[in-house]
């Protein structure tokens, strides 16, 4: 799903590159708040996890396969700033060491997969967390909806970039319909997997789920007497 070299023209690539650099610089400061001095090893291992999770391919039909993007998942698990950092590092390593995604399209890929999915996923998640009952069991569904919406929005932003810097005039309406339709299907898969993964971590180590932390602090200590003798 990575954008290769030559897909978007040079000015658009440079502009998205600038956006990516600015966002990564901001995330560096934000991640220090989320992880303090554990940033390097913890974010590095989370980046490795995101990479490993992306390795599992799912058949999406027509002989092609999609994989988890993991933006919304990482945002809910480790917080949005660290998530941007982790996904961006994954994309840089993939571009430089695995030739996956063009080097000039790195900014575009970071903007789409690293920034848009994380920002949208996290925003939707936080909004839902406010609306839904404040219970731990609501974290996973909220994360799933965040993931569901984040993927088509990324496709929407890609179509917008393509209309500005695409190298050919195609029927934008058709591209938009195709991209949105396709990515809604991918988004459903992303949502199911994201929700299930978050539910697992919430069930076993809720303290590790960044998005569940406010709910954990609200929980009152329950002292049960009489049950144990």
């Amino acid at each position: 799903m990575h954008v290769p070299d030559g897909f978007l023209d040079a000015p658009t690539s440079a502009a998205t590159g600038a956006v990516a650099v600015a966002a990564v610089a901001l995330s560096l400061r934000g991640a220090r708040r989320e992880l303090d001095d554990r940033t390097a090893p913890a974010a590095g291992l989370v980046a490795t996890f995101v990479f490993a999770a992306q390795m599992i391919n799912f058949p999406v039909g027509a002989g092609t396969s999609g994989h988890l993007m993991g933006g919304a998942l990482a945002a809910v698990l480790v917080g949005p700033w660290t998530a941007v950092l982790c996904v961006s590092v994954v994309l840089v390593v993939q571009a430089l060491l695995m030739a996956d995604g063009g080097i000039t399209a790195l900014g575009t890929n970071i903007t789409l997969i690293g920034i848009v999915t994380v920002a949208v996923g996290w925003t939707v998640f936080v909004a839902l967390r406010r609306v839904l009952p404040r219970r731990l069991s609501m974290v996973a569904p909220a994360a799933a909806v965040g993931a569901l919406i984040s993927v088509p929005v990324a496709a929407l932003v890609f179509t917008a970039l393509f209309s500005v810097g695409g190298n050919v005039s195609v029927d934008l309406g058709a591209v938009l319909t195709a991209m949105l339709g396709w990515h809604t299907v991918i988004g459903i898969g992303e949502a199911v997997v994201t929700g299930l993964v978050v539910a697992t971590v919430v069930a076993t180590r809720p303290d590790l789920v960044h998005g569940a932390r406010p709910l954990l602090f609200e929980r009152e200590l329950e002292v049960r007497t009489g049950a144990v003798r």
Partner: peptide, 16 residues
């Protein structure tokens, strides 16, 4: 997904 959740916890704890 349960395996991936376990992998996340293992990776994070390894980081710590």
């Amino acid at each position: 997904a349960r395996s991936l959740g376990a992998l996340f916890i293992r990776s994070y704890e390894r980081g710590e």
